[in-house]
Amino acid sequence: MSAQFLYGGAGILLFALGLWSLLVHEALLRKLIAINIAGGGVFHVFIAIAYRGDTAPPDPVPHALVLTGIVVAVSATALVLALHRRLEQAEESAADAEGRSESASASSAAPPPRTPTERTPTERTPTELTPADLTPADLTPETLHPETPHG
């Protein structure tokens, strides 16, 4: 009983700590780790309630739920990471474009030659961003410029 509470209580503490870290820290990777810790805390609670005492076999249902939950968490983590990388690329290319236009306006010299390794993924696949997507709406002050989750 007390071991069960210890384990489950630790889960709840992990949940709260994960929440705190998620809400306070700015960097996305920290947030991602934090939310995984919070999820781990919830899974802890499930594991704890499966415990049936020393003699009885544990309840398999919460175990199975936790397995399912882990797969869901893995999937979500993968998607968050991919979105994050894509966001960084988009920002890099935006910064690149800015830099290029600045250098072009500063001098009429041709832009510095770019090696293939410098090419950004956006440039590699022009089909990804169709002209219809790059509407002038993006350039209005009204366009939401939401804070990126890490800054």
Binding site: L19, L23, V24, P141, E147, P149
Partner: peptide, 21 residues
């Protein structure tokens, strides 16, 4: 005038999180 982004503050995680909790 176009409105300013008054919800910017709300979109900050710590503010939203405090409200939520």
């Amino acid at each position: 005038e176009p409105p300013g982004d008054v919800e910017r503050g709300l979109r900050a995680w710590s503010v939203a999180g405090a409200l939520w909790i």
